[in-house]
Write a protein that binds this DNA or RNA. Structure first.
Lengths: 200, 200
DNA sequence: CCAGTGATGACACAGTGTGTCGTGAGTGCA
DNA sequence: TGCACTCACGACACACTGTGTCATCACTGG
């Protein structure tokens, strides 16, 4: 009555079941939704995924990270897009364009975004980790700008500003799910931000 | 040879030594500086403070919080300053004025600011907690703005923007310790931010 | 058929955070 | 003086996180 002898993978795949990481992610999301993050133990997640507690920690460094798989690809993607932008473009312009472009394709293959948001919103501990992911974005933007010969000070501020735009745009996009493009969300937030700063 | 029979407090003070919380703060800062956050245990902190591990957790909810004592007073102070500002002032103006005012007096009775910064900068775990404190500031600003009848959307953005200003101004102030006023740091950052946004 | 590889299980251990109970110093009252 | 009362603290137990170490076992390549 085990659940991992259903699929049969071709050559270069693993000796045991290769879907372990995915099973852990799904099990964790389900359990966190059902009982709340604090009331779930790593042992329970591992057992639902058909593994032991020790094996969980071979896939994820701690109890939180299981919810943020894939987020490590966003910072380098943003950096690449920024470096590929028009060399003459102003720093903020280059970053916002990159944001809109990368964010648009990011938004495609995000499944369970609403569930993840619900779980995170209910747990301060998970919110702390999410902010760390946001900082990774900020740092990637800052470093990319430095490579474009932007001053350290300006790079830092533009990166923080852009992260504010990104977070709010993403929130807008989730709230108005499907009815608005990510690109327009970015522009809306940027315009509002510009209005508050110049109108002062 | 105990260290808590030196001072003698008046009536409404405690039965044991009332300086327990302060001793824990100092012990933690010292140990974190000496050996690094990860290599220090709560037991070591408590013992240096002349207490047991169990008593540590009666003063602080976890191993991190001991470094952030007093930070809970900043959000309400900011909120109060914002609500006391000129009712006709633009949202960002009101917030930045409050920031400069409250920050100026905050900066006075902050001892060991540089040490705390060094410890936090060396520990991702402490950085996560510090961001939580920043979010508390953002939320206080947002809620204060809402009480000033600012729209929810604008309040959110201005609050996030102001928090960016606050953090960078505080960093500038620490780096140029004593040579610049907190107020001027706020203005410098604000001007730079405005330049990047309007110049785009 | 056999040695090598690599994911996994089993076990041990330090450390965090919490619940519970006992103790002993200081307090208020007769 | 005596006596209950309060309350910070110590002592102990416990669940859980995160990590090191070793054994196992399936699969691979020869």
């Amino acid at each position: 009555m085990t659940q991992w002898d259903i699929t049969c993978y071709p050559r270069p795949m693993a000796r045991w079941d290769p879907g372990a990481e995915e099973r852990l992610k799904r099990a964790a999301l389900e359990l966190y939704l059902e009982h709340g993050y604090d009331n779930v133990t790593v042992t329970q997640i591992a057992e639902r995924a058909g593994l032991t507690r020790r094996s969980y920690f071979r896939y994820f460094p701690d109890k939180r990270e299981v919810l943020f798989g894939g987020s490590e690809r966003l910072p380098p993607a943003l950096a690449e897009a920024i470096l590929a932008a028009d060399p003459d473009a102003a720093p903020l312009t280059a970053v916002l364009d990159a944001l809109a472009r990368v964010g648009a394709q990011l938004v495609e293959h995000v499944d369970g975004a609403a569930e993840r948001r619900a779980v995170i919103d209910a747990s301060p501990e998970l919110q702390e980790r999410e902010r760390t992911k946001a900082v990774a974005i900020t740092e990637a933007i800052r470093d990319a700008l430095k490579q474009r010969r932007v001053s350290a000070e300006t790079a830092e501020l533009v990166a923080q500003l852009a992260t504010v735009v990104f977070q709010n745009a993403f929130r807008h996009w989730i709230e108005g799910k499907g009815h608005t493009s990510f690109d327009s969300c970015v522009h809306t937030v940027t315009d509002e931000l510009r209005a508050t700063l110049t109108g002062t």
